[in-house]
């Protein structure tokens, strides 16, 4: 039981990191991406390969994951950032669809649908982190670090410039802000955060395959940010816990034939998503309505 609760807490920390990193884009930068799972996936594959081929050192894996996911996100964002608003959403959607195909087809690297199995338990400088409680602390540490970075940056000049740009791109431009640079930095930061989450996820599951990095996953992460409250520090965390706890609570529904459980859980889950958005459009932690 304890093992199971720890497992759940680890996942919550990892998804917390994911939604906090996506919040940099959506909440602070006004960059609407539905491709966050792609960078989560790049990080997971990178981390898994470091662990399988080199050494299961968590720092090494996280660095490799952050580097690969960060660089790719910046590279992919550069051309797409030239367009605004809905165009960027749809471009990121296209990127997500392409990436899913590439992850499935490049089975030499990703294992395709079969995935990469047998990822060894993590270590740090040779010390084993296999104990679930220790690994949970590592995940929480990464999450705390990400929160600290976001808080620090958003209070500094970078954050202010980014938010100015979110509120009015032309005004920010007129004030002499380097808009493309700001956006690229935000994307890079968010991508690197997703990459680290991916490396942690690879260790946590000891198994990665493309199914964790599909459009559905991207939408889930996005929903965590939006439902919690975009552009707030606590919002993504609230959204993460809620979206993780809700399906869990649904397993309590008594008296259903086992073959219908899946569909009924889904039904309530989807309904909750829609109703929350109707009655709390700014998110649970948000004061003002969304960005546009």
């Amino acid at each position: 039981m304890i093992a199971y609760l720890l497992n759940l807490a680890q996942l919550a920390a990892i998804f917390g990191l994911l939604s906090v990193s996506l919040n940099i884009l959506i909440g602070y930068g006004g960059i609407f991406s539905v491709a966050h799972a792609v960078f989560f996936g790049l990080g997971a594959y990178a981390g898994a390969h470091v662990a399988l081929d080199l050494a299961p050192d968590i720092l090494l894996a996280a660095l490799a994951a952050a580097l690969i996911a960060g660089v790719f996100s910046a590279l992919l964002a550069l051309p797409a950032l030239r367009v605004r608003g809905e165009y960027f959403v749809i471009a990121s959607l296209g990127l997500q669809m392409l990436a899913t195909t590439v992850f499935t087809e490049a089975s030499d690297v990703t294992g395709g649908l079969g995935g990469l199995v047998g990822i060894p338990p993590p270590t740090l400088f040779g010390v084993s982190l296999a104990d679930p409680l220790v690994f949970l602390l590592v995940c929480l540490g990464a999450l705390a670090l990400a929160l600290a970075v976001v808080r620090l940056l958003m209070r500094g000049s970078f954050g202010r410039a980014l938010m100015a740009l979110r509120d009015s791109e032309s005004a920010a431009e007129a004030l002499g802000k380097n808009v493309p640079l700001l956006k690229t930095l935000a994307v890079l930061l968010g991508g690197a955060g997703a990459g680290i989450a991916g490396a942690l996820f690879a260790f946590q599951e000891a198994f990665v395959n493309v199914e964790s990095f599909t459009l559905d996953q991207s939408v889930l992460i996005m929903a965590m940010v939006i439902i919690g409250g975009a552009g707030t520090l606590a919002g993504p965390l609230i959204g993460t816990v809620l979206l993780l706890a809700l399906p869990a609570a649904l397993t309590f529904i008594p008296g259903l034939p086992p073959t219908d459980i899946g569909a009924v859980q889904q039904l309530i889950y989807g309904l909750a998503m829609t109703l929350l958005m109707i009655f709390r459009p700014a998110g649970l932690a948000g004061r003002r309505a969304g960005q546009r």
């Binding site: 759940l8 996942l11 899913t100 499935t104 199914e211 559905d216 939408v219 993780l244």
Partner: peptide
């Protein structure tokens, strides 16, 4: 791969378990 479903929404995040 575009099936929008509960697949990742629930399973990937291991959430349904609790």
């Amino acid at each position: 791969m575009t099936r929008i479903s509960r697949r990742t929404l629930l399973a990937a995040s291991a959430l349904p378990l609790a």
